[in-house]
Design a protein around this nucleic acid. Sequence first.
DNA 1: GTTTCAGTCTGAATCGTTTCAGTAATGTAG
DNA 2: CTACATTACTGAAACGATTCAGACTGAAAC
Lengths: 366, 366
Amino acid sequence: MKVKSRGSRPRVTFKEIAKELGVAVSTVSNAYNRPNQLSPALREKVLETARKLGYSGPDPMARSLRRRRAGAIGVVYGDELSYAFTDPVHALMLQGVATAIRNEHLGLLLISGWSEKPEETCAVRDAAVDGFLIHTLNNSDPLLAAILERTLPSVYVDRPGTDGLPSVVVEDEGGAKEAARHLLELGHRNLGVLALPLSLGVRDGIISPEEQAESEYWAVRQRLKGYRSAAQEFGIAWEKNVTVHQSVENRPQDGQVAAGVLLSQTPRPTAILAMSDQLALGVLEYATEHGIRVPEELSVVGFDDAPLAARLRPGLTTVHQDHLEKGKLAGQTLLALIKGEEYPSSVTLPTHLVVRATTAPPPEIV
Amino acid sequence: MKVKSRGSRPRVTFKEIAKELGVAVSTVSNAYNRPNQLSPALREKVLETARKLGYSGPDPMARSLRRRRAGAIGVVYGDELSYAFTDPVHALMLQGVATAIRNEHLGLLLISGWSEKPEETCAVRDAAVDGFLIHTLNNSDPLLAAILERTLPSVYVDRPGTDGLPSVVVEDEGGAKEAARHLLELGHRNLGVLALPLSLGVRDGIISPEEQAESEYWAVRQRLKGYRSAAQEFGIAWEKNVTVHQSVENRPQDGQVAAGVLLSQTPRPTAILAMSDQLALGVLEYATEHGIRVPEELSVVGFDDAPLAARLRPGLTTVHQDHLEKGKLAGQTLLALIKGEEYPSSVTLPTHLVVRATTAPPPEIV
DNA sequence: GTTTCAGTCTGAATCGTTTCAGTAATGTAG
DNA sequence: CTACATTACTGAAACGATTCAGACTGAAAC
């Protein structure tokens, strides 16, 4: 059944209530905001009249304008908003943010920077927020420029700050290095890397060493650097023995496809380093489907240590990072910045390798 | 390293730009909002001056106030905000909402109704939104009252509407009935039910038949009704042969605990009906830990058909519902309501049982 | 030469609060 | 009785934009 909404009569405001009662508008305001500024009797009368007139409560926009405080912090998504919910570890990070602001009467405004016309960054410009959490945006992104133009308190996540803004990052390079080293120590000599997108607007596929150097995304660059530095330590020729594949989307199905590509390379990798557990999960699914035994025939290392990683059988060897803490720290820093309190200019959280059951020596070791 | 934010100089506004250039404020406004209302040359000069003065762009709050449009829709959480991210199927629903509003330049404002003082519903009253999506709030919840007081366009999700507001629900009763019937057809006679919380502020534990009747949450009530009605069809004595346990939180670990409780009842259930896949997952984990074979020794049916359900080994038998579609529909309805367009007054999405590998006849069947 | 009209630009009102200096009335102290 | 707080309330100015009815051009139309 279809319905049409009825036209609404003119809004009730403080003015009407004041007129009805013959008091000043400021008195009505005080009745709501400073009960001790007027007699209890009058206050009750004001509230009563408000109820009688069907008042919907002080208008948040007017209040925000006057108070210069929006009551929300913004999180911007370069692409679709849905990303906030599809990536489980990102959700974990947001959960951390949520815990940081839980007592502050702040909302979390999720904004999509995506727009039909590339030059429209409306949503970011129009967002009524007290600060931004910036993540997954590289320096060349117009969205980042739009955010910075707002000159609001902002905190970077998973990438170092600019403009003197603070940041919360993790030891991406160190974690990646540890992961690669683990495989190399086990004896693997041909590796496949499953990378997250290196730049904005790229496509799935194998990445040449030259392209690898140009990643715009800090975290991806750091992780590649980590893998590479471990290879160097072991005297492995990166160009020859390590194939890098990038997947634009961070979903198991993309990892699955990528696994197929990597495993048809020569020399065939005996181990795969994935930049996320989601992608690693895809590799495991590919292996199951093609009867490749893990870890006997193929080793897999993830990144993130998502809750799922420990629950999988076999348990996924992966690089642990504390997403909740990352979000919480970012939230707290932003909060301090907004309030004008002291805040850490930059925090780096540790990572460490968690060895579970998806890694073992390569099959044909002597 | 700790830093303190520098004090900010007074804000640049349209007024300053206008004064600097010797034009009217309205002209500056037009430069931003109606480029065809002034000569390109002047427009460029205005923009140039704005840049020179370090203007941060039109203030969203002022703009919202004047335009009577917040540019966001609100989703309220009764408890912690983090719930939005911990429940994977809820995230899926939000993802659906996100797709519905993707072209509308709207943000998604997540609000926690939780507060230290029970009577403060600040966040809801202060939220600058154009409408609300209401879910998981029962009629007696003060938060719901606070939302309704705002008299904004709102859509109910997973529960029927009040005040003539539209709603999007799923066939909870039908799905539940189908699930229970499936088990009964397989020959199970003693069932355990893993329920989501029946009311606000309850605790984990076995629920007596009397308490069961009093569930404040619509969806939970419907599902219980469905289970019960199937039992009746098969002539099963509900009080004797069906034990209901409620878990306040909807996490695998809670399902795990609950499974332990249910399976120590006499008569011991040979099958468990869980009201969510998260809880069902916990049951499976409990079974694995205690060496109980599924489905040979214990059958399990979930609810939701979360993405994980199909990926599990063995695949989880569960009641499918389309969370994405539910969110999308709710989003679209709210959008129509906001715009004053026609909207469906109420939609019920279908559910159906997906039989996978966690259900089989009970062990001692003759 | 007057009318018309599109193109630019202006002034003032408005959106619905909050805030703050100030007034009048009452109480309290010296 | 004067001086000084205290309490209860008021008026008007913000907050920073948008909007809309005009006013003023200069050119095209008649």
